[in-house]
Amino acid sequence: MRLLSYLGQRLLFVAPQLVGILFVSFLLVKLIPGDPAVLMLGPFATPDGLARLRTELGLDRTVVEQFLIYLGNVVQGDLGTSWQTTMPVTSDLAQRFPATLELVTLGLLVALAIGLPLGVAGARYKRGLLRTGADYYGLLAGALPDFWLGLVLIYVFYTMLGWAPAPLGRIDFAVIPPEPVTGALLIDSLIAGNWEAFRSAAGHLVLPVLTLGLINAGPILKMTQATTERMLDSDFSRYAELCGLPRKVVVAQALRNALPSVITIVSVLYGFLLGGAVLVEIVFSWGGAGQYAVQGVLNADLNPVLGFVLYSAVLSLFIYLIVDLLYFLIDPRTR
C-alpha cells in the first residue's frame, strides 16, 4: 500500500521536475557564447539575412518566451532540428541514445562484476594481499582518466596485438547492421538472428566497455568495501558471530545490508555516465548521445543539447524510481 501511494506521489512530480530541469538547462544553454545565426549562415552572411534568420528562430524574443515556445513543441513530441545534422533531434537521438545506453549499461555491469567481489573480499580480509590489491586498484581506478585507459587499450589490443577491431564506431562498415528495434545493436541483431552483426557489434563493444568497467569498478569497489566493512563491525554481525554462524554467512548478510549503498552508487554512476562517457565515446568514435550533445554545445546547436538533457533527465528519474523500488525490496523498514 505504502508502495503504491509512494509511486503515485513520485509520478505526480515527474512532469514539474522535468520542466524545471529543462528550464534551467535552457537558461544555461543560452549563456553559451556564440550566435547560432552567425554560425549557421557562415562568414558571408549579410546583416539582413542574419536578422531574418534570428526572427525565424525566435531569437529576438525574450528567453522566457523562447522557452515557452520550446516547451510547447516538446509537449507535442517535437524537439526541433539540429542545424548540423539537419535532422530532427528525436531521430538523431533515437539512434545515438541507445548507443550510449548500451555502452554505459554494459560498462557498469562489468564494473559491478569487478568491484563487488573485490570490495566484499577486501572487507572480509582486512589484511593480506587481496586487500592491498583492492586498495591499490581503487586508487588507480580513481586516478586514471578513462579516455587515457581507452587509448592504451586501443594501442595494446588493436595496434600491437590486432585482437580488437578498429576503434571506429559500433560495427564494421562491411557488416549490414540489423533493423533497429531497441537501438541496442546486440539486442537488435539477436532479434534479427543476424549473427555476423552480433559478433561484430560485440567485438566493437569489448574495449570501450572494458574501459568504462575498469575505471568505474573503482568507486563501486570502494563503496562496497567500506559499507560491507561497516556492516561487519555492526552489532548484528557480531551477534551472528556469537551465534556461531559460519563466516561465509555472516559476510553474505553484511553484504546484503550493504546493498542499498552499492545500488545508490551504481545509479549515480549511471546518471553521470550518460553524459560523462563522452571522452570514451570520442576515443572510440562511438557516435553516442554524449558526443552529440558536446558537438551541439561547441557549435551553438541548441536543440541537440536540450534534447540530450531531456532524455537523460527522463532516464535518470526512471533509474531513481527503480532504485527506490529496490530499496523497498531489500529493506523491510522502508515498507
Partner: peptide, 16 residues
C-alpha cells in the same frame, strides 16, 4: 554455549 544479549532490537539483523 549461547548468549542472551541486551538490546536485542539493535542486535538482530534488521533485514531478516
Amino acid at each position: 554455549m549461547s548468549m542472551v544479549i541486551a538490546n536485542p532490537r539493535s542486535e538482530l539483523n534488521p533485514l531478516l
